[in-house]
Amino acid sequence: MTQPTSARTILKARGLSKHYGGVVALDSVDMDLHEGEVLAVVGDNGAGKSTLIKVLTGAISKTAGTVEMYGQEVQINTPTDAKAAGMETVYQDLALVNELSITKNMYLGRELLRKDFTGRLFGALDFARMDTEVRALFQKLDIRIVDIYREAAAFSGGQRQAVALAKTVMFGKRIAILDEPTAALGVRESQMAMNLVRSLKDHGLSVIMITHNMQHVMNYCDRVMVLRLGRLAAVRDVKDVDGDTLVGLITGTTEDKAA
């Protein structure tokens, strides 16, 4: 694994494992994330991609393993711990609540309270401030959604994904973790979403992205890690690998010589 020495390692996970009874979903996987990169996580169905991300972000508890950020060991046991550590995650199909407005979705779990006594005493929400912030951010990211108080169910897949990605910009301090950001999106909407992923980088976030789309790996990612049957099969710089090799690594027909 050849890495430019200038890139700092922001996140270092060692021996991540998840067992469901006798079933090993994730088997001692190591992973490094460098500052400012987009790291793709690829693998066949059931390879452990989603499990890896869920373990990393505290959505499910891990059986074994350690996680360090900037060389400091961190304990991430709940989604709240992950957020506190600066990790913002977009889960596939679990990004937005259909029944809530766009603004309420953006701030879910981190609502802004009014600064007067009603906020302190009753937890009264400051909708004006939240609306303003959301509009300003959407403008900055070129997300064209105007009716931010309409419920999320009213928007298209691409718009919903844009909102979910905007949430990582608003709250992600260090790392954005994306589980198949373009699944179920059309060609044009995928393009829009991937441009947003690229702009996450410009906003100072390092990105971990699960994807099935080799084109996206080649065009938008810096490094790629391949999972197979719950194990780490390979890690490559994207510039050193081509699509066919990658598919070979995913299916197991190409063995990783570097590892």
């Binding site: 959505a59 989604p79 709240t80 957020k83 995650t89 889960y91 679990l94 990004a95 937005l96 609540v97 259909n98 029944e99 809530l100 309420k104 879910l108 779990g109 981190r110 609502e111 309270l113 009753f122 937890g123 009264a124 929400l125």
Partner: peptide, 24 residues
């Protein structure tokens, strides 16, 4: 309609898992 706890009722009833993952 106006408080955090009240709004979380809609979030939890709408999609409990999303609410949990959002830190509610």
């Amino acid at each position: 309609t106006k408080t955090r706890l009240g709004n979380h009722a809609f979030a939890i009833g709408g999609n409990e898992e999303v609410a949990r993952l959002s830190g509610v």
